[in-house]
Simulated scan of single mutants.
Amino acid sequence: MAIPELSSLLEMSYMGVKQHCIKLEELGYVKAWRVPRVQVGRPQKLYKLTKKADPLFPTGGVGLVLSLLEGVRMSFGDSAPEKLLYHYFEKERDLWLKAVRPGKSLVEKATRFADARTRSGHFCHCHYNVKEGFFIEEYHHPLHEVFVKYPNLMAMETRMMEQALGTQVDRDVRKGSHGVKCTIYRIGTLG
């Protein structure tokens, strides 16, 4: 992200965020690079986390989870891990429902949903553009490694999101607005 975006997201002054970014870059937690602007102007300086920052973000005990799921698979069959995780996603859906319930519009519900996920160790925020409509960009998922091993869980989680938001959600992985790979959740309708 660029400093103005970070400043808005963190509700801090531009200079306060800039000082933190400079210090984090000196410590090796973030890396800065310049991206040419599409229109006229100086290149924009963007910051992204380095591998050194990985321990600062929760991973959901991935090693333990994968080991347990493998034991469940060996003991009860190939479909057992996904059946077990279905209950986890049902619980998550119920928490999401609580978070989005006060929202009056779908945009407000999706924004509350993204905020709830961010509080639980994800890093996501909402966007809108004319071409794609309303969507959520997610840059960190604590269960990413579990999803790599059990890809059907992505569809399961997306279905639970649809149930929580009450609309169609399409999941895609690609470069996000900050030029790095992320997961995009397109919100199907705004009605």
Rank of each mutant, 00 (worst) to 15 (best):
Y139F: 12
H122M: 08
G166Q: 02
K109I: 00
E162N: 05
K48S: 15
D170I: 06
D94E: 08
P55I: 09
Q163P: 00
W96K: 01
Q44M: 11
K91M: 05
Y150K: 14
M12T: 12
A155E: 15
W33L: 08
T59A: 09
I187W: 03
A155D: 15
D115Y: 06
P81C: 08
R34K: 15
G61E: 07
H141D: 08
I22M: 12
Q39F: 04
E82H: 09
G191A: 14
T158Y: 06
L49W: 06
E92I: 05
L143T: 03
P36R: 11
T183S: 13
G41E: 11
L10N: 13
K52G: 07
K98V: 06
M1L: 13
R171I: 09
I136K: 01
D170G: 01
V40Q: 13
L153Y: 07
W33D: 09
S7H: 07
K52N: 09
S177E: 10
H141V: 05
H144A: 13
M161I: 08
G121N: 04
T189P: 03
L85Y: 05
F89L: 12
L97N: 03
T111I: 06
E26C: 00
G60V: 04
T111V: 07
V30C: 02
A110C: 04
S13Q: 11
K83T: 09
L95Q: 08
Y128D: 13
L10K: 15
R42Q: 11
P102A: 07
A114T: 05
G133A: 05
A110M: 00
E5V: 04
G71C: 09
A2Y: 06
V30R: 01
G176I: 05
R34M: 09
W33G: 09
V30Y: 00
Q168R: 11
K52R: 14
C21W: 04
I22T: 11
H87T: 11
G179K: 08
S75I: 09
C124W: 05
P55F: 05
I136L: 04
I3D: 00
L69T: 01
E70A: 13
E26F: 02
G121W: 02
F147D: 14
M160E: 03
E92M: 04
R171M: 14
K175C: 07
G166N: 01
T50R: 07
K109H: 02
M1Y: 07
F135I: 06
G63R: 15
K131S: 13
S75N: 15
E70N: 12
R42I: 06
L56A: 15
L24R: 03
E26L: 03
C126P: 04
K45G: 08
R171W: 08
G133D: 05
T59K: 12
E11A: 13
A116N: 06
Q163Y: 02
E132P: 04
K109R: 14
F135D: 01
T111P: 04
W96C: 00
R174G: 06
L10F: 11
M154V: 10
T189I: 10
M161Q: 07
L27H: 10
G166R: 01
V65F: 03
G61H: 08
A164M: 02
L190R: 15
I187R: 02
L56S: 11
A110H: 01
